[in-house]
Amino acid sequence: MRQFATIRCTINGKVTETAVDVRASLADMLRGEYRLTGVKKGCEVGECGACNVIIDGECYNSCIYLAIWADGKNIRTVEGLEGPNGELSEIQRLFVEEGAVQCGFCTPGFVLTATAILESAKSGQKYTRDELRRELSGHLCRCTGYENILKAVEKAVSRASA
């Protein structure tokens, strides 16, 4: 039997409310109910990181996070990063400049983790290159060899701590 629950949460700064199937994942809710298709699905079991979103400041694979757990939470997806007139965020701009994008399917997930890293760097957190690698290791990418992604994130973090 289908059971529905009402989920109230903030998505990209906007207070929302919707009824979701209690079995639905957050990824399904964001893609299906809110058409936030920047949330990608590559495995649906938390292996690839393509569905990563920021929930109350922390990164989660939304494919293994139930939609009902999102009640009362503050959720950010890639769609929430650009400015009011479509301006790219610093991380997004660096991904473009450093050639960190290829097929683009893992990109939104990576951009969000990089955003969380950069925000913590701006609050004083320091990262070595190995620590950055560890922070980014929840994302799989088959196109880039991660090389230019790491370059983009390193550049952003070094600017933040400069």
Binding site: L36, E82, L88, F95, G99, G104, P108
Partner: peptide, 25 residues
């Protein structure tokens, strides 16, 4: 020249549509 990819903006903003993104619900 290393010009930026023509699709880079759409891909970093999550606007680029892949097959499942286009499918009717």
């Amino acid at each position: 020249r290393s010009v930026p990819r023509v699709d880079a903006y759409d891909k970093v903003t999550g606007r680029a549509k892949y097959t499942d993104d286009l499918a009717d619900r």
